[in-house]
Each structure stands twice: as C-alpha cells, then as structure tokens.
C-alpha cells in the first residue's frame, strides 16, 4: 500500500466510525488527513496552537456525544502531559495518532529527546500505545484503537512510526 493509499483509507476509516472533530497541530505525516478534514463539510477541522488544547477538546467533544481525534507529531506529546490528567481521571475516550520523529533514520538531533520519550511518557500517563511500522499495519492498528477508545473508554495512541512514514529529508 502506497503512502497516499493508507492515508486515504485512514480518513475513510475515521469517518466510517463517526469521528467528526479533527484537531491537530500540522505535521507532514498527517497532511492527507488534515486536507481531507478541511474539505469535508460534515466534520470540524480544528487547527490548534498547542497539542494540549486538543486533549481538552477531545474531552469536551465526548461530553457532547461526539467523537474526536487528535493528530500530532511526537514532539507534541510532551506538550500534553498534564492535560492527560483530564482524559485519564475522567475516563474520557482518547484517540490520538502520533507521527513519529526522533527514531528510525532521524537526521535532526533536536528530535531525539522527545521522540525517544514518547512511549514512556504516554504510558506513564495511562495512555495505551500501539505502533504501525508498515503500511499494512495502519488500518488494523487504528481500527483496534477506535474500539479500545470509543467502546472501552480507554486512552489510546497509535504511533505512525518513522519506518512507516519515512525519515524527513533535509
């Protein structure tokens, strides 16, 4: 499956499961999802100034009976830490897709500290972490995460790894 194909399939999957609020700090790894959400009249496409806004927004959407997804880069995980108290303590469903930097083949040394800390930080705040390493992993992983979040009320992150999305070229 080519990159555009899994990204298109991923948008369809989220819409089939009634995700209607897409909030994000832009990242190249989420470009297709962001573009599709902007073009879709049936969803709210919400650019954030910082990722922790999205954690609170996901909780507010759930209070109102809607489903949201938070799209962010690995560096944004660090901006969310205390706000995850809300989703954890409130048992709010959280579905977040994290495009990874600072791992497989990274060429920017600034990305390593947070990239390497993503999994332990999320787990420390009670977020379950799934990984997608290749295109055929994406749909099964996100399908699983949707069930875990919206049916079982868990907080779940799917890491779109650098092996999947490719290291950024400079």
């Amino acid at each position: 499956m080519a990159e555009d194909e899994w990204q298109e399939a991923l948008y369809r999957l989220l819409r089939e499961h009634n995700v209607t609020q897409f909030c994000y700090v832009p990242d190249a790894g989420h470009k297709v999802l962001i573009d599709r959400s902007l073009a879709d009249p049936d969803v709210h496409s919400v650019p954030l100034t910082t990722e922790e806004e999205g954690v609170a927004m996901v909780a507010g959407a759930d209070l109102g009976g809607a489903r949201a997804v938070l799209l962010m880069q690995s560096s944004g995980v660090g901006n969310c830490i205390n706000m995850l108290s809300l989703t954890n303590g409130g048992r709010f469903p959280l579905l977040t897709l994290v495009s990874m930097r600072g791992e497989f083949g990274e060429g920017n040394p600034w990305q390593f500290p947070m990239g390497q800390a993503v999994e332990p930080v999320l787990k420390a705040m009670g977020v379950i972490v799934l990984r997608a390493e290749q295109p055929s992993d994406v749909i099964p992983a996100v399908t699983a995460a949707i069930t875990m979040a919206f049916q079982s009320g868990q907080q779940v992150a799917v890491l779109l790894t650098q092996r999947l999305i490719g290291a950024k070229k400079f």
């Binding site: 609020q21 927004m57 959407a61 209070l63 809607a66």
Partner: peptide, 12 residues
C-alpha cells in the same frame, strides 16, 4: 482545559 472543553462541547 476549560475553554477548549467548551469548544469541543459547543461543536458537538
């Protein structure tokens, strides 16, 4: 959290 929770709720 409160203002952004309000946004998610208002849109929903």
């Amino acid at each position: 959290a409160a203002p952004m929770m309000g946004l998610g709720l208002a849109l929903a």
